[in-house]
């Protein structure tokens, strides 16, 4: 059971509800029994390694692909029911490759999207002006899409998702391939939008999710392997695998590694890195940090090593991600080679 992250309305019915979603491509099971709910106002990070089934799941959530089994509801309307067009009208979608009609002008393209999404002529004019302004496209509104840079094309992609002001946004890797300036711009825009909308954001950039998302869904080998606020996922991982300690030492590497691994309560020495000044940074997983830390301190004094830093490192999203996807990735690789 997870608590509701900030921004979410815990009392409202879910805006996105997916249950038992399955999709096969030939013999490959791309999505295998995925189910979750997203409530009004949530900004949910959707993570997974390449080939985990994220994009296929998003295509089913937006109504482009039909699931082999399972169902999706948007705002209470099922995507395979009589209210499917109303359900799709509630979603703004930015696919992974940002597909656009290259030959069209930005403003005419947005007006076209508004028209097929049911806006009247007057409403379209207002919607295009509002969206162009929201996505900082004023100077480029009359330019043909093919003449725009990747960053501006991405903004046009976001603008088409926003033109009817839908309550749900599904964004598939919106910052992929952009330069750092554009990444920050798009991320700021998504954060601003999250104040009014329910957003499902797929990305490979874990720091992006840590920064903006209140909740995380992790998919691996087509299955949902984690669902909850990042703090809860981290706490659950620490309870299962142990806590993280970071030790920065002035010591010979091999000797320090062996000695640290032998300290009672140290479960594993996960990573070792060396700084420019020769200091060694060890990341450890320990059973109980308040018991292990004094032992490490004593060890350092006994060996005459300098301790530059000794601190607790909470379970980062990276650690959660790796821990939750590791087993399933190994399993799917074994199945593929069998």
């Amino acid at each position: 059971m997870t608590t509701s992250p900030p921004g979410a309305d815990a009392t409202s019915p879910p805006v996105i509800r997916a249950s038992g979603l399955e999709k096969r491509y030939g013999d490959v099971r791309a999505v295998d029994g995925v189910g979750f709910e997203v409530r009004r106002g949530e900004l949910v990070g959707f993570l997974g390694p390449n080939g985990a089934g994220k994009t296929t799941t998003m295509k089913m959530l937006t109504g482009y692909l039909y699931p082999d089994s399972g169902e999706v509801s948007i705002g209470g309307e099922r995507l395979d029911g009589p209210g499917r067009l109303a359900a799709r009208a509630r979603i703004g979608y930015l696919p992974e490759r940002t597909p656009l009609y290259e030959g069209m002008r930005v403003d005419r393209y947005l007006a076209f999207v508004g028209e097929v999404r049911g806006l009247s002529r007057a409403a379209r004019r207002d919607a295009v002006a509002r969206t162009v302004a929201a996505c900082d496209l004023d100077e480029y509104a009359t330019r043909r899409i093919r003449t725009l840079s990747k960053g501006y094309r991405q903004r046009v992609g976001l603008a088409q998702a926003l033109v009817t002001d839908p309550e749900v946004l599904v964004l598939d890797e919106p910052t992929s391939g952009l330069d750092p300036v554009e990444i920050v711009r798009i991320r700021d825009l998504v954060t601003r939008l999250s104040e009014q909308k329910t957003i499902l954001l797929s990305t490979h950039v874990l720091s992006e999710v840590e920064e903006v998302c209140g909740r995380v869904l992790i998919l691996a080998a087509g299955r949902l392997v984690a669902d909850g606020p990042l703090l809860e996922l981290g706490a659950a991982l620490e309870a299962e695998e142990g806590e993280g300690l970071v030790v920065v030492l002035g010591a010979p590497e091999e000797e320090a590694r062996e000695a640290l691994a032998a300290v009672p309560g140290v479960r594993s020495v996960d990573r070792v890195s060396r700084s420019g000044s020769g200091r060694l940074r060890f990341a450890l997983t320990v059973s109980e940090r308040f018991e292990v830390a004094p032992r490490i301190d004593e060890l350092a004094h006994a060996r005459n090593w300098t301790v530059f830093e000794l601190r607790h490192e909470g379970a980062t999203l990276e650690r959660v991600f790796l821990a939750r996807t590791r087993g399933l990735l190994r399993r799917s690789a074994t199945e593929a080679s069998a």
Binding site: Y64, R88, I91, P95, P99, L100, E102
Partner: peptide, 14 residues
Amino acid sequence: RSGTEELLFTYPLR
């Protein structure tokens, strides 16, 4: 080829 088919069928269109 351009992928616009995917977007088109997520709009409320039959």
